[in-house]
């Protein structure tokens, strides 16, 4: 028995949910970024799986979207971590619960 598309989608849904769990339950800003990266990786896995199981895998559209998505995720990670360092310099904390200066 070979794995079907459903199994790949279930794995990627699980990875997405774990990323969401990290984003919602962590208080450290770096780990919120890690959760976002995991959710993006789950989306990439879906792109590749749908490309591989599509009736026309000759045209590598899914692969191209995944490559661009990885590049954009890398840019996002660089800017996000720079923001974390800037925030840490200013407030001496990376705990997102303590960053409530804009709260009314």
């Amino acid at each position: 028995m070979t794995p079907t598309l459903q199994l790949f989608l279930i794995v990627s849904a699980t990875l997405f949910s774990i990323g969401l769990l990290a984003v919602l339950s962590r208080r450290h800003a770096i780990f919120i970024l890690i959760g976002i990266e995991m959710m993006l990786a789950a989306a990439n896995l879906n792109f590749i799986a749908f490309w591989r199981f599509s009736p026309h895998p000759q045209s590598p559209t899914g692969v191209m979207v995944a490559i661009f998505s990885i590049a954009i995720a890398a840019a996002e990670a660089a800017v996000g971590l720079a923001l974390v360092i800037a925030v840490y310099r200013h407030y001496r904390t990376t705990n997102v619960d303590q960053l409530d200066q804009l709260k009314g």
Partner: peptide, 20 residues
């Protein structure tokens, strides 16, 4: 570089787990 809090302390956020 942000070494001051290297441990994520605090109680777990059950609302986030339920949503996930």
């Amino acid at each position: 570089l942000t070494r001051r809090d290297v441990e994520d302390t605090g109680r777990p956020n059950w609302g986030g787990a339920i949503i996930a």
